[in-house]
Design a protein around this nucleic acid. Structure first.
Lengths: 200, 200
DNA sequence: GCGCCTATTGGCCGATCGGCCAATAGACAG
DNA sequence: CTGTCTATTGGCCGATCGGCCAATAGGCGC
C-alpha cells in the first residue's frame, strides 16, 4: 500500500512496483485517516508511508496504525532528513526509513527486506540516527518554550504565556541552549529547524 | 526532460508521461551540471526541474540554462513551498512553478501549457507569491549577516567575521529585524526558515 | 544630475539575556 | 524506597541586545 501526498509519485511508484515480480500495489492514498481504513480493508504486506500527508501527519498515522495493528509492517519513504523524524518514526514502530532519492533497486530491496521481517535503514539515514543518538531529547515543556522563542517572545512573555514566572522561563531557555548546544536563542531556533523539532 | 534527485519519482514520471499522447521523455538526470549537457544534446521542448538536485541546486541550474539558452522552457516541479524559492525561480526565468502534490491531469495540463508558451503557476503557489510580494527583499549583505546570526554569532562576532565594526553589524541586524518583521534575532532566524532564506 | 538604496560608522541607554549560585516538589523507574 | 528527571522559583551581575539620534560614501536607475 502507498501513502504519500504526491499523487504523481504514487502513480509512478505503483506503475514501477507492479512490474516487480511478486509485488502488487493494492491500495494508495494521500490521506492519513483513509490510510487506516484502507489498511483494515486490504491488509497489505508492506505499507510505504510518507511523513507529510494531506490530513494527519505521517508519524501520527503510523502510531495509530501500529496501535490498532501491531503486525503492520511499515517502511517510511520520505524526503525528510530531519533527525527527529527518523527517530520518532522508528520509535513509533516503522520497520525502515529510506529517503526518496534511493534508486529503484534499493527501494525494491528494502520492501522485500521489510516484508521478510527485517529492518531497512538507508545508510545515509543511519548516519543521521547516529548523530541524533548523541542528542539529548527536549522535554515537552522545553519544546513548548522553543516554540514561543521562535515567535520572538522574551523570557517574561514566555512566562506569561505559560502561566509561570519569568525565572522559570529563563530556566527552560537555559536548558534549551544546553541541550541544543546553542549559544543564544537565535541559534537554538536554527538548531530546532535543523533537527526537525520545528517545522516551517 | 526530467531533472529531479528522486530517481523513483523520475522513473514513475517518465512512465506516466510517456503514456500521454504527444509527450515523450527524452532525457532525465538527478544532477544540475549534467542537466545542461543533456539539454544541449536533446533540446527538449519542456524541462521539468526540481529545486534540490544532487550537485548544483535547481535555481543555479535554471539560471545557467537560461543564460545559455533563453528559449528554454522550464517548469519547476518541486515540493518546496518556500516563498523565496518561488520568487527566485520565476525571476530566473521559469515558465511555471507547481508543487509535487498536483494531480496527474494538472501536471500534464501545465506541461502542455508551458509548451504552448504560457505560464503555469499552481493556485496554491500563486497565494505564496502574493504573500511574498508584500515582503521586502534582504540585501546580499543582510543575508550574510542572517547566516551568521543563525550560527549564534553576537554582533561583535558578526563584525569580526565580516571585517566590519560591531556598530555596522548592529545596523544590519536592525535592518533584518525590520524587513523580516521580527522582534529579536531568534524570530528573525525563524522567519528566515519560513521564507526559504535559510535552508536546513 | 538627482534621488534612492546599500554599506558603513558613531554615541547613548534602558531592556533583555545568559550564566552563576541554590532550593523544593512531584513523577516515574528501578 | 531511592534516585533521577522535570518543573518550578529566587537573587545577582556583567554582557549583549535593540532602538533612538545622525552622518558619509558609493552604485544604479530615471
Amino acid at each position: 500500500m502507498l501513502v504519500d501526498d504526491h499523487a504523481v509519485l504514487r502513480a509512478g511508484l505503483a506503475n514501477l512496483l507492479n512490474f516487480e515480480p511478486g509485488l502488487t500495489v493494492v491500495a494508495e492514498t494521500d490521506d492519513g485517516d483513509s490510510a487506516l481504513l484502507l489498511w483494515r480493508e486490504h491488509r497489505p504486506d508492506v505499507t510505504l508511508l510518507d511523513l507529510s500527508l494531506t490530513g494527519r501527519d505521517g508519524i501520527e498515522t503510523l502510531r495509530r496504525l501500529r496501535a490498532e495493528f501491531p503486525e503492520a509492517r511499515v517502511l517510511m519513504l520520505t524526503s525528510s532528513e530531519a533527525q527527529e523524524d527518523v527517530r520518532y518514526s522508528l520509535q513509533a514502530g516503522a520497520c525502515g526509513y529510506i529517503t526518496k532519492n534511493v534508486r529503484r533497486a534499493e527501494l525494491v530491496e528494502a520492501i522485500r527486506n521489510v516484508h521478510a521481517g527485517g529492518q531497512s535503514i538507508g545508510e545515509h539515514v543511519a548516519r543521521l540516527l547516529a548523530v541524533d543518538a548523541s542528542h539529548k531529547t527536549l522535554s515537552p515543556r522545553e519544546l513548548e518554550v522553543l516554540g514561543l522563542v521562535r515567535q520572538g517572545c522574551t523570557n517574561a512573555e514566555v512566562g506569561r504565556m505559560l502561566g509561570i514566572s519569568e525565572r522559570t522561563a529563563k530556566a527552560h531557555v537555559a536548558a534549551l541552549l544546553a541541550k541544543l548546544q546553542a549559544s543564544d536563542r537565535a541559534e537554538a531556533v536554527a538548531r530546532g529547524f535543523e533537527r526537525g523539532l520545528l517545522k516551517v
